[in-house]
Design a protein around this nucleic acid. Sequence first.
DNA 1: AAGGCCCTTCTTTTT
DNA 2: GAAGGGCCTT
Length: 735
Amino acid sequence: MAGLDFIDSLNPAQRRAVTAGLGQVLVLAGPGSGKTRVLTQRIAYLVQGLGVRPQNILAVTFTNKAAREMEARLVRLLQEDFKGIWLGTFHANCARILRRESQYTDFDNNFAIMDADDQLAVIRRAIKDLNLDEKSYRAVSVHTAISNAKNNLITAADFPTVSYRDAVIKRIYQRYQELLRASNAVDFDDLLLETVRILVDNPQVREKYARRFEHVLVDEFQDTNLVQYELLKLLGSHHGNIFVVGDEDQSIYRWRGADYRNVLRFEEDFKDSQKILLEQNYRSTQTVLDAARAVIDRNAFRTPKHLFSDRGKGERIVLYEAADDHAEAAYVVDTIRQYLESGRAGGGDFAVMYRTNAQSRLLEEAFLRAGLPYRLVGAQRFYGRREVKDMIAFLRLVHNPDDEISLLRVINVPPRGVGERTLVALQLAARQLNLTPGRLLLELGRQGDKSPYWGQFSGRSALVLADFGGMLTDWRSLHSTELSLPSLFDRIVHDTGYREFLDDGSEEGKQRWENVEELRKLAYDYAERGLAVFLENLALVSDQDTIPNDEASAPTLLTLHAAKGLEFSHVFIVGLDEGLLPHSRSKDDVEEMAEERRLFYVGLTRAKNRVTLVRCQQRSAFGAYETQEPSQFLEDLPDSLVLRQGLSSAGWSLSRQARPKTWFTGTGGRTGGSAPVIEQRYHPSDRVRHAVWGEGIVMDSRIQDDDETVDVFFESVGFKRLAASMAKLEIVAKK
DNA sequence: AAGGCCCTTCTTTTT
DNA sequence: GAAGGGCCTT
């Protein structure tokens, strides 16, 4: 076979994976074991070795960056031969299917995608609409509940109402969906859920895609949630060639519905699947691997792996204790500076990782003070800015005038005299006329005082509304005829006077205007592909996507989450304090503590050569300084691998022991606090029988309000949330 | 209707 | 120690 030379450079396990036969394949790949390489070469093998046409391959990655990276590698292996492949994130691929098949949904194919901020705004409105108290129903917690439901395939109609609160949340959920649909919009979770729904409800659509995708490949499989898993099964249902790559130990998105037990589920669902372990690590020194293993071995329920490396022992891990968080940042920057000055390393060799975004501020300041460049990873930082969101809202409105969330955001930006009263009048009139506010605005803009709707408003209101509607009408018609995306952008800035509004002479104003110019530059890149693609990509950017691809010579600052999939010669992990890593919000939950541990593991295994761990005795929490205890994870590092530096380098264990051990111990079960009144009887993966619904599998279970709440997936009716005391579930088989 | 001041709340992680 | 919401004045 020609052109398959690349296979020769693989190790035996990698080669077995790349050339595996048809059917289902599960590749469990430790960090640095050549996961991406296996995935791309598998695709190359399918195309060149087996003659599969690229358009019959679906490859799903976790971030757009990973997709681009894979594309770049495919170019090297196949030149043009891979064109036509469906390659992208779950969300991007679903958006693509939804736009094509929008006749099967209750929205149009130019639907908007709501980001997290938008979603909260819609939820706040839903709560207001229902006359509920915003204090007792916090938008964030309602959003979590709705999102969790969606990730578990639960629609508003099916939302289980065990408690009164659930019943209220169900109503908010329903109202929230109404508001989204009225705006011709979907949220992140809908992209997946709606796609599943279309495929389930319409056999002909399912067949179309299932026949098309002869091969389905998934990266970062441990971070898929139930909807994504379902999607995978549906899309692979015709040919059954499903190839997934993952590592349970790197599952760090549980809070977003990800469930590493999908790995177990996969083996359960596909009894004939092949399992291949990749254990040779090509990235790290043995010291790094030994430390990482000491940390992760304390987690239960995992496939034991024996990572090995031929890169030699390498240097010991440095553990540095600083006096406070300023000294912590200064130590990191100073250490990097010394390396750079000695010429032993380039800036791009370093990464500084932390648990929370808030920790980046002091680091940034330290870099600035030292006059050293750095790059900060974090899309939210840019796209979350007011001025950027404003400009995007204008563009979204041009594309989809029904988008009421964007309309409300900018109808009075810059201030043009549309206040509370005018707004209410607009919404009221729109409802009476059975139009969306945006459509009514366009009508007023087009016809001015000739419009039959003019009389609905007081003179002043009509004037300002028609004025805004007029601009919107112009933008829409210009854009549909002659104006390119960048020109449209400029036109909006010009017509609204947005620059003058922002750039008020202050330093902050100048900064804000620069952000708008940054966005404009981005729009320029999309001149060819157009507004729709631009908006979609904006909605689906991830933090990782903002890492410049050029191996720039500056140290990278990023969260541990954003670090997944990356590697650096020298990794700093800061904030190894109890309550920060592991985070205090996780301390009551065994599963969450296990995930904190995996997060630390992910950070450690990013390092090729050196790891420096940093903590401090005092840290400003919110305004005031608080004394910190060392992270419990530090205890798990073998002394032989560690070099202690900084303050009280001999006294660490003392300060550790002084702390009363009321927190989680690592062996499971509860410690400290009040003992639970009842014992947990059901556990994930148990098989149970219900009098009415028959047999099912326990997905999750927890003690809540003196009862046990059990989530069960029944073969007959699907997902149900039950109160154990009421449901009388019989245990058929213990896991 | 806009702008300014005070209050609370917040901090996990993000497609 | 920031940012957003509520309430006040102009």
